[in-house]
């Protein structure tokens, strides 16, 4: 049984765990600073060749959709803007941790990013890149719980598979909170944009989102579509049920949903081999 009183402070301190890669720790100290500028971030990335190559890889991937068009970090920063770059850096830095927590979570996350982008584009939403970032990071609470309580969390995943139940229900049983809450805690601690924190917190309860209702509904739906397709792995083999209010807020017609399913096919095929393992 885990002491839930201390859970939040333990989760908030995961950046001090010895298992956290040093790049991620350094990155957090940079992005936690609310006054950080694009040029601070630019020089931070440029000083790290591994990070530089990952950033270039990601911005040219189907997640952001500038295929082969971005060749420098500065160009990426100007095109994407501060908030998106912060989220993207976090995404590429939690890559190893994701692989360690759950084989397939990285694929699930980029699948969700790509699908959020497809839906957002179809509905003509603004700030599509921020939706992509939310897609990559929506399950960061799972990474945090996995990093802090590796054995317990692996046990939950095994139980979810054996008993054919949703991982989120088992999280609630053991921790009294789910990856939605832990993700939002981390988002607050690390100064994520408000929109991102709200999406993390409510992607399983999209009806509760007030300020970013449509964006939260899009990521909720994308998460479900990616699982329905069987792309990647998010901790169990079930599909969470579509929330009817979120469904209404996104407002996809039957034909539009069918187009989304078809467009996912190509984009997921492309992102299937998209991996940040350094060559």
């Amino acid at each position: 049984m885990i002491d839930t009183k201390n859970l939040r402070s333990q989760i908030e301190k995961i950046d001090t765990l010895p298992t956290i890669p040093s790049t991620l720790r350094k990155l957090l100290s940079v992005i936690e600073d609310p006054k950080v500028s694009l040029s601070d971030i630019g020089s931070f990335i440029s000083n790290d060749p591994v990070l530089t190559s990952r950033v270039i890889k990601v911005v040219n991937s189907p997640i952001y959709g500038f295929p082969g068009r971005i060749s420098s970090v500065n160009q990426a920063l100007i095109l994407l803007g501060l908030n998106v770059v912060k989220g993207m850096l976090l995404g590429v830095s939690v890559f190893e941790a994701m692989k360690k927590t759950m084989e397939g979570l990285w694929e699930h996350s980029i699948g969700c990013a790509v699908t959020s982008k497809i839906i957002g584009t179809k509905k003509g939403l603004a700030d599509i890149e921020e939706l992509s970032v939310a897609g990559i990071l929506h399950d960061i609470g799972k990474v945090a719980m996995g990093l802090k309580f590796l054995d317990e969390y692996k046990g939950l995943i095994k139980k979810a598979i054996d008993k054919n139940v949703l991982l989120i229900d088992l999280e609630k049983e053991l921790f009294f909170v789910t990856h939605s809450e832990t993700g939002a805690w981390i988002g607050q601690r690390w100064n994520f944009p408000k929109s991102l924190i709200e999406i993390l917190e409510y992607h399983h309860k999209p009806q509760l989102s007030k300020n970013y209702a449509i964006q939260t509904a899009v990521v909720h739906l994308a998460d479900i579509l990616v699982r329905a397709k069987g792309f990647g792995f998010a901790g169990d083999y079930l599909i969470p049920t579509i929330n009817p209010i979120a469904w209404q807020r996104v407002g996809l017609s039957k034909d539009e949903l069918k187009e989304v399913i078809a467009e996912m096919e190509d984009s997921l095929a492309e992102s299937g081999e998209f991996n940040l393992e350094d060559d």
Partner: peptide, 8 residues
Amino acid sequence: RFQKSGTN
């Protein structure tokens, strides 16, 4: 996958 999951 759909059979195992909730429905509406």
